[in-house]
């Protein structure tokens, strides 16, 4: 049913992504594709996989952005530019526009934990949900003709046949830098909610009115490289002992 749950879901399972920590290694992209191509629903196909024009279905993609300080037209003009690696997958929005536009009822938001899923047996592959999503979280699988999206690894997080440590989304389990965190964002005491509160976690495109569950943590303020650099061999005031004696002797020559 493509009506959204009438009440706020008791749990809001989602991700918190730390933009200060992500190194842009794309390990989560590969791990996501690996798990989900053999997991929930149709495989994530590739087109022309060994050719020049390779493309394929991914549920998680990493963009890298360059952020120039305000007023700068080119790098280095007013302070340092920063590179921010930016992982992006479905945000499991509370007010998910992709769900309500679905004509068949294939797209739905679970009323217990808030995960947004596609019932692939009902999907006609019209693509309207991908148009409705401002985040590009949905991609049509060209081989299966159905819409694919992040399932928050629904087949891992409740899976009692795997070790408890693995019952988190594949991307979270894989991230070597610990930039991705999974938990219940409806519970203010959960580690993810505390992290969001402590670091001023934010929503992507709040103006679109989607109320995303996933939050992003901003990059921390950074000391400019020029300020922390020590000018080398400019003076020898700190020298002591043998080096002070050597310094004095060399001065005299």
């Amino acid at each position: 049913m493509t009506s959204l749950p009438s009440l706020p879901t008791p749990k809001k399972l989602g991700l918190v992504i730390d933009l200060d920590v992500c190194v842009g290694c794309h390990a989560c992209v590969i791990s996501c594709k690996e798990w989900n191509t053999g997991g929930y629903g149709a495989a994530l196909s590739d087109q022309d996989p060994y050719g020049a024009d390779v493309s394929g279905t991914f549920l998680n993609r990493i963009h890298s952005f360059e952020v120039l300080p305000e007023g700068a037209e080119k790098i280095g003009e007013t302070g340092d530019a920063r590179i921010v690696h930016f992982p992006k997958s479905c945000l499991h929005c509370e007010d998910a526009p992709c769900v309500t536009v679905c004509p068949t009822g294939a797209s739905y938001k679970r009323s217990d934990d808030g995960i947004v899923l596609v019932d692939e047996d009902m999907c006609i592959g019209c693509g309207l949900c991908a148009w409705a999503c401002p985040y590009g979280a949905r991609e049509m699988d060209l081989a299966a003709g159905v819409m694919k999206k992040c399932t928050l690894c629904v087949d891992r997080i409740y899976n009692e046949t795997i070790a408890e440590i693995d019952r988190v989304p594949s991307c979270v389990r894989t991230c070597p830098a610990n930039a991705r965190h999974y938990g219940d964002l409806a519970d203010p005491q959960s580690h993810v909610s505390k992290m969001v509160a402590a670091r001023d976690g934010f929503d992507l495109m709040p103006e679109q009115g989607t109320k995303p569950v996933n939050k992003y943590l901003p990059p921390r303020a950074r000391t400019a490289l020029a300020e922390s650099a020590i000018p080398l061999a400019e003076n020898s005031a700190g020298a002591s002992g043998f080096f002070a004696w050597l310094d004095g002797m060399l001065e005299r020559i």
């Binding site: 963009h63 952005f65 120039l68 300080p69 700068a72 992003y216």
Partner: peptide, 21 residues
């Protein structure tokens, strides 16, 4: 990206070299 508080945001690298869906 939510990075407007740091400065102006410009794409540096796309997720993949080729086009996608």
């Amino acid at each position: 990206t939510g990075l407007g508080s740091i400065g102006r945001v410009r794409l540096f690298e796309r997720p993949h070299i080729n086009d996608n869906y």
